[in-house]
Every structure is written in C-alpha cells, then in structure tokens.
C-alpha cells in the first residue's frame, strides 16, 4: 500500500484514527463455516440428480411395462418423461446457476459486477423460459402416458381431457411455470437496479 502524495490527507488520518475493534478469528469456526458452505454447494449440485435419477428409473420401468402390455402410446409418453429428466439435467448443468463463486469473488470490481449481471441474466432467462424447457416436455410425456391409459380403458379424448388427473397435472405445471415467471420478474427488477436492463423491460 502506498500513498501517492507525501502530504498527509486529513480524511485518511481521521479514518485511520477510528477506535479499533480487535478482529478475533476462530480458525475452527472459519473452517467449519467453509466446510458447511462446501456441503451446501455439493448438495445443491446433486439435488436435481437425486430427484431426476429415481424418477427416470420409475418412468423407464413404467415405459417398459406399458410396452410389454402393448400400450405403445403410454410407453412413448413415459419415455418422453425419462428423456425430459435428462434434458433438464443437461440444461441445469449447462445454463443453471453457478454454485461456487469463490473464483468470481477474486475478480476486480468491474469484472465482478459484469459477472454478477451475466449470472442474473442467465438465471432470469432460465426462469422465464422454464415453461418451455422444464414444464412442456414433462407435461407432454405425462399427458401422453395418461392418455394411453385412458384409451386402454375405453375413454375418448374429451373424457380424458376433463378427467381429474389431467386437470391436476395441468394445474401443477401451470403453477410451476407461473412461479418461475414471477421469480424471473423479480430478477428483472434486480437487473434494472444494477443498470443491466432498461426500466421498462
């Protein structure tokens, strides 16, 4: 650290004259906090996989069973759900929020701000398009799966469309899409505050 001028700056003198509160460090606490953060980040990284893999296994079993039973429509639907799970994992891994930002914290102020904005923009895009990359593929798969079963039971398209399971499935996915859109709107507000989006966006 160096002063450019040899003249003492009264503000600097005043600043440094602050009563010092000793900075006591507890290495065990710091290491414990860092380890806890590492665990949280690891869990966040694996969370989607913990959910997606068992669901993929269940739907693969269901698809196989429907195929063996001769219900091709349901089988295709179940396979679409399985494919969607892997697609979602890919999208989250490729475009999802970065879990560990230790490296970014060492960037200079401008670069950090730019990185932070880019991260928010990416997350906002992901949230606002969740209906497309998240809800739609699974919804199509589940709808086809249910429709195949309804056809096998002798129901027509109208009966299936107005059945309780269909309406519940649709409602759940519409709610998920709406929640994501609300979150994206909140994020847009933060981006406006950061000057990364025009206020009218």
């Amino acid at each position: 650290m160096s002063h450019e001028s040899t003249h003492p700056d009264p503000l600097q003198e005043l600043w440094k004259a602050q009563a010092q509160i000793p900075l006591e460090i507890d290495m065990n606490q710091i290491q414990a906090d860092a380890a806890a953060l590492d665990r949280v980040l690891l869990a966040r990284d694996r969370r989607e996989r913990f959910v997606a893999w068992p669901l993929a296994a269940i739907f693969t079993a269901m698809a196989t069973w429907q195929l063996v039973s001769g219900n091709t429509l349901s089988s295709v639907g179940a396979f679409i759900v399985v494919g969607s799970m892997f697609w979602i994992l890919f999208v989250l891994r490729r475009f999802g929020p970065r879990s560990d930002e230790s490296a970014a914290l060492g960037l200079d102020g401008q670069a950090f701000l730019q990185d932070y904005r880019s991260e928010l923009i990416r997350q906002r895009r992901l949230l606002s398009l969740a209906w497309l990359w998240y809800c739609l593929p699974i919804l199509v798969g589940i709808a086809l799966f249910n429709y195949g079963i309804a056809v096998a039971k002798g129901q027509d398209l109208g009966q299936w469309a107005l059945s309780v399971p269909t309406l519940i499935t649709l409602g759940v996915f519409l709610a998920v899409a709406a929640l994501n859109l609300v979150a994206a709107r909140g994020m847009a507000q933060r981006l406006v505050e950061l000057g990364a989006l025009p206020a009218k966006d």
Partner: peptide, 27 residues
Amino acid sequence: LVALWRGLALFRGESKLSTWVYRVAHN
C-alpha cells in the same frame, strides 16, 4: 473471512495479495 479462506486455495498470485484481499472483501 470464510470467502478469503476458501479463495486462498485458488489464489495463484496473479495479482498482489493486498489487491486480491480487497477485491474479495468488497465483492
């Protein structure tokens, strides 16, 4: 302090230590 502790493992000396500490602290 936690960020500095975690970041210290990644610090490669590309900038001065003081610069890095102030960057992390302010960020």
